[in-house]
Design a protein around this nucleic acid. Structure first.
Lengths: 140, 140
DNA sequence: GTAAATGCTGGAGCACACTCTAGGTCAAGA
DNA sequence: TCTTGACCTAGAGTGTGCTCCAGCATTTAC
């Protein structure tokens, strides 16, 4: 598999694949006679794991460190496990933080809906009110 | 309240507070006779909301757009609500993605633990095995 | 044989969100 | 009065993670 196909299948751009190789995220690749990178299909599993690590917010330097440990073989297993355990705590914290954000968004959206409902009352001919102003005072 | 105190209380650096004002996230602030920014305590609520929006991954340009709508007053409420609803969907997706990552991390950590356990078996005098190699084949 | 597509390299450029610097003003305490 | 510390501005610099570019080689299709 050449880099174009891997790019299509992995969802990383060609430039990113070469960049990842350069910084050590992807091991140095075999080349064909013409100097083109030839990938084994198994690289896709590694890349999808890399994408997961990125999705957790891990920086490429840490990922390169992990990748380097992986290259060193089984004796680095416990160091890698430790890295993943640290990352797991970070991910848990992120989920908690995002859940808090979600609650706030839900609250705010509700608040806006109330404001809009109260506005339409105000604009209706039947009642005029200072309701809106009251609700909006804490609006942000 | 001067900027130093606001910085301490809000958790944003002084530079960031001035930067946020410059890009329109924080409304232009009153100045004292000497030109120093004087903040009302209520600004802290707005800043903590800004921090929440940032935590959702919203970019500062979008946040500035939201802030500008807020400055325009109540008639922009529905646009702001829409922005928050869009952001809510993004946050939900992020939580889902992070949960997937968490599952994978849990799986990998377990796997590493098994490898380590099996290694200690191999290193014990009683049994030699190819177990480790077998488990490690898919190691990443 | 030729043109188009795909690949290569090294290095520059970019978007983002700050963060820092230089050089200055201002206010309060000793 | 002098010094210290907090604040000011405009603009440069930083770290991150790509992304793009020029100029070239190779491969493939016709």
């Amino acid at each position: 598999m050449y880099i174009g196909e891997l790019s299509a299948q992995s969802g990383l751009s060609i430039d990113t694949l070469r960049y990842y190789e350069k910084i050590g995220l992807i091991p140095d690749t075999n080349r064909d006679h013409g100097g083109r990178r030839v990938y084994q299909p198994s690289i896709k599993d590694w890349i999808s794991f890399l994408k997961k690590l990125r999705a957790t917010g891990m920086g490429v330097k840490d990922m390169a460190h992990y990748a380097a440990l992986r290259e060193l073989g089984p004796e680095t297993a416990s160091q890698r496990r430790q890295m993943l355990e640290e990352r797991r705590e970070i991910v848990k914290d992120k989920i908690t933080e995002l859940s808090d954000c979600l609650n706030l968004l839900n609250y705010k959206i509700d608040l806006y809906k109330k404001i809009e409902a109260s506005d339409s009352k105000v604009n209706s001919p039947l009642e005029a009110g200072v309701q809106t102003k009251g609700i909006l005072k804490n609006d942000d």
